[in-house]
């Protein structure tokens, strides 16, 4: 059952990555790599969330996996690794948290001091969580590249 959930997760996140790769006009030869990077990263995150890990840490590890796949495909297809890492990280963008936080912030404008504290709490937590997940994701996909793709500085 868990395996099925993970496989389903990988399928949908691979579809998200390919959709956005096409939006960014990625070359046809790279689409498979984008799907693999995005699918793997998100499926691993889902698996780690099942074990009870915090979403920020799980996102960071998922991002690392995307970053390593991006390096591998970048060497295999001789193309910039950014193509794979940016397309691959889209499924992990915390859209729902951001949306919820904005919704709470709007509701704050017509709240009373009694109801307001709860709404304020919700929106601030949502914003902080969105920011932390985004930062973890960006760090995750950049670290493999910054550590393992050091070329001789030419400039």
């Amino acid at each position: 059952m868990l395996l099925f959930t993970i496989m389903e997760d990988a399928f949908w996140s691979a579809l998200v990555s390919v959709g956005f790769a096409i939006l960014f006009q990625a070359p046809r030869k790279t689409l498979f790599g984008c799907a693999v990077a995005g699918g793997f990263g998100h499926a691993v995150r889902r698996l780690l969330l099942f074990t009870g890990m915090a979403i920020e840490t799980a996102t960071f590890i998922g991002g690392l996996i995307i970053g390593f796949w991006a390096l591998y495909f970048s060497r295999r297809y001789k193309t910039p690794s950014t193509i794979f890492s940016i397309s691959g990280c889209i499924p992990m963008i915390p859209g729902l948290f951001a949306y919820g936080a904005i919704q709470s912030l709007i509701n704050l404008t017509h709240s009373t001091p009694d109801t307001g504290s709860l709404i304020l709490y919700e929106s601030v937590v949502g914003l902080i969580r969105t920011g932390l997940i985004l930062m973890a994701l960006t760090l995750g996909i950049l670290i493999p590249r910054l550590v393992f793709q050091r070329e001789k500085p030419v400039v």
Binding site: S13, V16, I22, P91
Partner: peptide, 22 residues
């Protein structure tokens, strides 16, 4: 690289897949 209708369809599918993920 891609026909505009391919982009429209694939972006729709991509966002649809995101809705399944959440």
């Amino acid at each position: 690289t891609y026909n505009r209708w391919v982009v429209v369809l694939m972006v729709g599918l991509g966002c649809g897949a995101l809705s399944k993920l959440i």
